[in-house]
Design a protein around this nucleic acid. Structure first.
Lengths: 202, 202
DNA sequence: CGGCCCGGAATGAATGTTCATTCCGGCACG
DNA sequence: CGTGCCGGAATGAACATTCATTCCGGGCCG
């Protein structure tokens, strides 16, 4: 069997061990950062031998990058759930923001991992994509804002600024919740996203 | 001369080399992260021998922590500049936010370093301080928000949430500017801070 | 004056440790 | 009996830190 994805195989062959390795890496990196996650420890936590990891991932960088891509897709999928294109813009925004924040709170490890990833040399590559205009990264959020500007509902500011206004607070508040500085219940989540909307609306 | 601060000396004796080491560490860590800043490289960049660093800093952790403290103080000082306690709350907020954002843009290395620091095991300690209610970390910002809540000018939300709403966007937009995704001029800075105020005001 | 000696700062090669990655004997399945 | 997956010990590179040695300035003695 050819483990490394062949030219026409489904992108990733299912494998119990592969999944265990990813899970272990996620846990360790989210909790202790890249420093506190040596391959040997990942192996132990995944219940496999150190060498086995290399049967599934060419090296640590690849492992880390694939884990990122997996989480990225997972979030994209989640935040599209229940999206209704015919509702007014404001409602779609609130729905999207709420979904995102809920996801972070429900999956703190995913959130912490993404933060680690972005603040690391790995993140640079991802940023380059953003320069090159690739849509996907939070693409829905971006689209929403563009639409708002076009409809004159949203302040007329550069997209990057609007993006920061809309999602900067969500990220920071999610971090605070996960670190235990606030307890966000459903009501607070809605208030928070509403306040973000207040910030960008005209 | 006693380099390590004596009991009644000013906290840090002035030293050409000490300053060079801190500058080199700041540059390297801000640009390449903690990974890309081995002591040997810091030494080269500072123009001193590797061993010399240890005459000024007990070890790498201490070096990193002292650099953080130095930047922290520098920012506190800056953001207090021109603060007028008798102006209305909104104006004080706008002044403070603008000053902060300007600082980040004028000192991108400081900003990047602080980001690295917070997303690292070192940051944990700092966070613990916040739990224990220590005022200083962005203490002025916090005070402003408390006052706003008391005066019923600002939304009645937990302080951590308000803090995120007010400063999350500033941090994110500063990052975007430094990475080249937006070009913030003076007008945009003011618009941005104003939008943050819109987010938290009642 | 000029040579000499000393204290302490500075140096950078040597050390020990921590990993990522590789390698190889063994084991299970066909 | 093969074949190919596994485990985990072995390897070597990258670092932080140490320490024996060098260097330097400035008092002291002849």
């Amino acid at each position: 069997m050819n483990i490394h994805s062949g030219p026409d195989e489904p992108k990733t062959v299912y494998s119990e061990k592969r999944a265990e390795i990813l899970r272990a890496a996620l846990e360790l990196i989210a909790e202790h950062g890249f420093h506190g996650a040596p391959m040997s420890t990942i192996a132990v936590r995944a219940g496999v031998g150190a060498g086995t990891i290399y049967r599934y991932f060419e090296n640590k960088d690849v492992l880390i990058k694939e884990l990122f891509l997996e989480l990225h897709e997972k979030i994209c999928a989640w935040s599209l759930k229940g999206y209704e294109a015919d509702k007014p813009l404001r409602q779609r925004f609130l729905h999207f923001g709420t979904a995102l924040l809920r996801y972070f709170i429900a999956n703190p490890r995913d959130f912490r991992y993404l933060e680690q990833y972005h603040n690391s040399p790995y993140g640079a590559e991802f940023r380059r994509d953003r320069i090159l205009g690739k849509e996907e990264s939070g693409g829905l959020g971006r689209g929403l804002l563009e639409e708002g500007v076009a409809q004159q509902i949203v302040k007329d500011l550069p997209l990057a600024v609007l993006f920061s206004l809309a999602f900067g607070p969500l990220v920071m508040v999610a971090r605070d919740h996960i670190l235990g500085f606030v307890e966000l219940d459903d009501f607070l989540i809605q208030q928070t996203v509403q306040a973000c909307w207040d910030g960008i609306k005209k």
